[in-house]
């Protein structure tokens, strides 16, 4: 096994040569929303998307866990409860890599405004809450570009839980964090697991420059702030459709 941090002496790969060059080899922009379930992030990203589309900007929406690639393996693992924290994390990392390499990066390279419902921070928060080492998780996603803006929608745990439970009462095994053995009761387990995930997100506000959004504010008020921040961070006219 290696001494941590020591790279072996082998042929440098093209990536290793490239890593010395300046970052951001693309003309697009990436806007990300993060937060626990029930924080209101998806609603807000949807409204932002509408605004940009109606405004005539080249936008593309992508969401976590939507690649058909590892669907059967994920389904098999989840159905039969075969996943450990490490394999749960890796299978989602494979899924993300597929979407990143085939969708997100090409869209950024071709100058799109990419809107992502969840990004690498979801893995840091959720898999971190499952017990995977943070350094290990950060390394797994090290190739992914840092977003231009990351909105973190934060709602108090009770509020988020109430929103989720009123909508769909049947919680899935991994979703509820049942694999951690926090509780035999799915609702109690879900609440505890979301609490652990929330704490992980909170830690990233500083380290990852999250724009904190108070998920308890009225929808239209939050959306106004979101549009102001996007307009302030990103030169939107670069994304205007020419047609």
């Amino acid at each position: 096994m290696d001494t941590p941090g020591v790279t072996i002496e082998a042929v440098p790969t093209p990536e290793e040569k490239r890593s010395k060059q300046p970052a951001r080899p693309y003309s697009g922009a990436l806007v990300v929303v993060e937060g626990i379930d029930g924080s209101g992030k998806s609603t807000q990203l949807h409204l932002l998307k509408r605004w940009l589309e109606v405004g005539g900007y080249r936008t593309y929406f992508t969401e976590w866990n939507s690649s058909p690639l590892v669907k059967s393996a994920t389904r098999r693992g989840k159905k039969r409860h075969l996943l450990t924290p490490v394999t749960f994390s890796l299978i989602h990392a494979a899924d993300f890599a597929d979407r990143y390499e085939r969708q997100i990066l090409p869209l950024l390279r071709s100058g799109h405004l990419v809107l992502a419902d969840r990004y690498i921070y979801t893995a840091f928060a959720r898999d971190g809450a499952r017990g995977c080492p943070v350094d290990w998780l950060r390394n797994l996603y090290q190739y992914a570009v840092v977003p231009d803006v990351t909105f973190y929608f934060r709602a108090p745990l009770e509020v988020a839980i109430r929103r989720i439970l009123s909508g769909r009462p049947r919680l899935k095994y991994y979703e509820a964090g049942m694999d951690l053995g926090l509780s035999l009761d799915p609702v109690e387990s879900f609440t505890k697991f979301q609490g652990l995930t929330l704490a992980r997100y909170d830690q990233m506000v500083q380290t990852d420059n999250f724009v904190l959004m108070d998920g308890t504010l009225p929808v239209h008020q939050l959306q106004q702030k979101m549009r102001d921040v996007v307009g302030g961070h990103i030169e939107l006219k670069r994304f205007k459709n020419s047609g």
Partner: peptide, 28 residues
């Protein structure tokens, strides 16, 4: 592996997989 071996087989057969994805599926 019971979990993912078949999926890797079918990906390899299709040859449409990208390098990070393949590396991570092998890791899984």
């Amino acid at each position: 592996s019971f979990l993912i071996a078949k999926d890797i087989d079918s990906l390899l057969a299709k040859n449409s997989v990208t390098r990070y994805t393949l590396a991570l599926m092998y890791a899984t």
